[in-house]
Design a protein around this nucleic acid. Structure first.
Ligand SMILES: [Zn+2]
Ligand SMILES: [Zn+2]
Ligand SMILES: [Zn+2]
Ligand SMILES: [Zn+2]
Lengths: 137, 137
DNA sequence: TCTTGATATGTTATGTTATTACGCTTGCGG
DNA sequence: CCGCAAGCGTAATAACATAACATATCAAGA
């Protein structure tokens, strides 16, 4: 059965390493975090990581969290999610929950139609505390 | 009649200068953009700008655009907007449209309740082209 | 009045995130 | 073989943000 940590086989070496680092991480990683994890594999420069991340994000295998300047592996098993994706980011434990909501998407679409705004990309990030961390408080 | 460029009188000098810079700008400004605009007024260091921005954002007089690492003055006349605010950012002309949507807010609230997630802050940013720039294309 | 605390400020240095520029390599179709 | 596209390696630099420390201002409240 497919598993979210399966990695497409047509990735280049650097892309595979970067996606691997993201998949094995509990939470989001900055490009420099990733670089540090991969020095042992021969990566030396930020650009090597950024280039890999660009491709991964382009393909939907990873996502950039704008409010964190960091990246996560896509949580969707088949990585085919289209349209708006929302992220709930816990300030306590760092975990990220990825979800889609058609109602919100429609609502935004309505706003855009009314304004004549052509949407290319939407970022939606909720910061707060997850249930576990609220409990612990 | 009140006007969105009116500035509360209890701002400190630096806060007033920074908000003024944002109010007089067509589009979002980075902290360093602001600094450059205010060198003539005696500002010298990034921290002076960041400190003022922190206060302005805290009071809702300015907003941070995470996907741009930049700031805009609040477009609301009385600067009392609570809750979720969305921004539509034009890639063509840089203009930013600020709006609120209760339906989206409710929908997120529902999701959060269901998950036990305690929301502290939400960022929602739409990138694309405004009507004018779509026309021009 | 004198002290004390809270808030704002100024300055230097440093840390973190992201890109530009350039050249080499690899694989693939003409 | 040639020309092109995509990927890679490296160095340098740009852009964004904070730490650390010193000083200034002002409003309680003893
Ligand atoms: Zn995803
Ligand atoms: Zn948590
Ligand atoms: Zn606003
Ligand atoms: Zn535009």
């Amino acid at each position: 059965m497919a598993h979210s940590h399966d990695v497409p086989s047509d990735l280049t070496r650097n892309q595979g390493l970067v996606l691997g680092a993201l998949n094995h991480s509990e939470g989001p990683l900055s490009a420099y975090d990733i670089l540090d994890k991969l020095r042992g594999d021969g990566l030396r420069a930020p650009l090597q990581v950024y280039r890999a991340l660009d491709k991964l994000v382009e393909r939907g295998l990873a996502h950039r969290l704008e409010s964190l300047n960091a990246f996560v592996a896509c949580a969707d098993e088949h990585c085919h999610r289209k349209g708006l994706i929302a992220f709930a980011i816990c300030e306590g434990c760092g975990k990220v929950d990825e979800f889609a909501d058609a109602v919100i998407e429609d609502r935004l679409g309505d706003w855009a139609s009314a304004k004549g705004f052509k949407v290319e990309r939407t970022t939606m990030e909720i910061r707060g505390k997850c249930a576990v961390c609220v409990e612990a408080a």
